[in-house]
Simulated assay, not measured.
Amino acid sequence: MPAPRMSAARLAAGLLAAMLVLLAAGLAAGSEGWSLAWADEWPLVSEIRAPRTVGALFAGALLGLAGALAQGLFRNPLADPYLLGSASGAGLGVVLVLAAGGLLGVTIGMASVGWLLRLGLVGAAFVGALAGVSLTLMLSRGAGQPLQLLLSGVVVGVLLGAVADLVMLVSPEALRGKQVFLLGTTSFLGWPSVGMLAGALAVGLPLAQRFARALDALVLGEASASSLGLNLPQVRLLLVVLMALATGTAVAQAGLVAFVGLVSPHLVRRCVVVTHGGLLALSALSGGVLLLAADVAARSVIAPQELPVGVLTAVVGGCYLMLLLRRRAGG
């Protein structure tokens, strides 16, 4: 028997309640354990825990939004925000900056980088993600053909990944930095990062809502969407730009956090039946809650040491999808 569905308002209320609880947990979780004495530790809470907690929420929301856009754009529930070359482009950008720092004689370590980490790595990851998507669009000659766009993203991902590997052969000191970036981390999120993430979300979510009806029309098929007067190549191009903006901003700040963008829309669809207007907002909220929960767990599981948050999301997300596939196969 299928699980009973709930209303969208009830799901939103539940996610908001979970978000508030996790925000409090994020402020209380430290390297020495849990503490609610925020007044005694206010500098630590306000400058380290608070921006990290809020930043994880916003980064997850951007990934959840990008995942819902990708699945609606390609009409494929297995589409994720990294399909169009953004992940490999961001990885290459990070490797190039690390390699350049090594050649200049700068000692690079993800735990001890100053201005280069905040300006160089973050900027390179963002530019690299956008460059990867742009190269995909050039190779596919626009966004008019979804299958060609998808295949172009796969080709660009393999190509840029190979270039990054070649750079690491020349500059092995870039390997450690890339490894931390690929695993995903929220350790370096500060208030400037929160501002960029919040700005991207404030721009991306309202714009995505404007295309909700277009995504609903795409579900009916391209012929039906065209008969409704939609300019499909233009709509797809704008959706790809929105997806690249959301993904590039999140990846630049938190690295390659796996499965959040893929799983968030799945969880929403299993709980409620909504059009894309509700799906986009609920997927963003669900993604924020998922990454925030993973961040709190990453700080707490083996404290005072810390797990890469991307590893937790990959394990939990992978187990969820395996269970989902097994249930569908059994059904």
Rank of each mutant, 00 (worst) to 15 (best):
P4E: 08
R5P: 07
A8F: 11
R10I: 02
R10T: 08
L15T: 03
G26S: 05
G33R: 07
G33L: 03
P43A: 05
S46P: 01
I48H: 04
R49S: 02
V54H: 09
G55S: 06
A56Q: 05
A59F: 08
A66I: 03
G67M: 09
A70D: 05
G72R: 03
L73I: 07
L84E: 02
G85V: 10
G85D: 02
A87S: 15
S88R: 02
S88W: 13
L92D: 06
V95E: 03
L96G: 05
G101T: 07
L103D: 04
G105T: 13
A111L: 13
V113R: 04
L116R: 13
L116A: 12
R118S: 14
L119T: 14
L119D: 03
G120N: 11
L121P: 06
L121C: 09
G123L: 10
A129C: 04
A131R: 03
M138Q: 10
M138A: 14
L139W: 08
S140D: 07
S140A: 15
G142H: 10
G144A: 15
L147N: 06
Q148H: 14
Q148T: 13
L149V: 06
L149N: 05
L151T: 09
G153K: 13
V163G: 04
A164M: 01
L166V: 11
L166M: 10
S171K: 02
P172W: 04
G177F: 15
G177S: 10
F181I: 06
G184R: 12
S187K: 06
L189A: 01
G190E: 14
G190M: 13
W191Y: 10
S193C: 10
V194W: 15
A198G: 14
A202G: 12
G204P: 03
P206H: 03
Q209F: 03
R213A: 06
L215R: 09
L215S: 08
V219I: 10
G221I: 05
A223T: 07
S227L: 10
G229Y: 12
L230G: 02
N231Y: 11
L232H: 09
P233S: 12
P233V: 11
R236L: 11
V241D: 01
M243W: 00
V251T: 03
V257K: 11
A258C: 08
S264F: 11
L267H: 00
V268I: 00
V272Q: 00
H276W: 02
H276D: 00
L285R: 01
S286I: 00
G287N: 02
G288L: 04
G288C: 04
L291E: 05
A293L: 12
A298L: 10
P304Y: 13
L307F: 15
P308M: 11
P308Q: 12
V311S: 12
L312P: 08
A314Q: 09
L324R: 11
R328S: 06
R328F: 01
